[in-house]
């Protein structure tokens, strides 16, 4: 773990665990797919709610 990972546990760094980085890259891909689907009108925001992609603030 990099100093930042260890100290703050906020962001991944290039030195983070490779599996975590791979998961993160997959997550980014998934987010881009959702952004694209929203902009194409293939899904609606209410679908995001149904899928549980929104959570309320504490």
């Amino acid at each position: 773990m990099s100093r930042k990972d260890k100290d703050d546990s906020i962001w991944l760094s290039e030195h983070s665990d490779k599996r975590r980085i791979r998961d993160a890259e997959n997550a980014r891909y998934n987010r881009a797919e959702i952004t694209k689907a929203l902009s194409h009108g293939q899904i609606r925001r209410r679908d995001l709610v149904k899928w549980g992609l929104f959570t309320s603030a504490a």
């Binding site: 906020i10 975590r20 997550a27 980014r28 603030a57 504490a58």
Partner: peptide, 16 residues
């Protein structure tokens, strides 16, 4: 109000 964590491990965690 945040997207659930699993969609993006790069964003700051929601709690505290």
């Amino acid at each position: 109000m945040l997207p659930i964590r699993g969609l993006n491990p790069f964003v700051r965690y929601a709690v505290g």
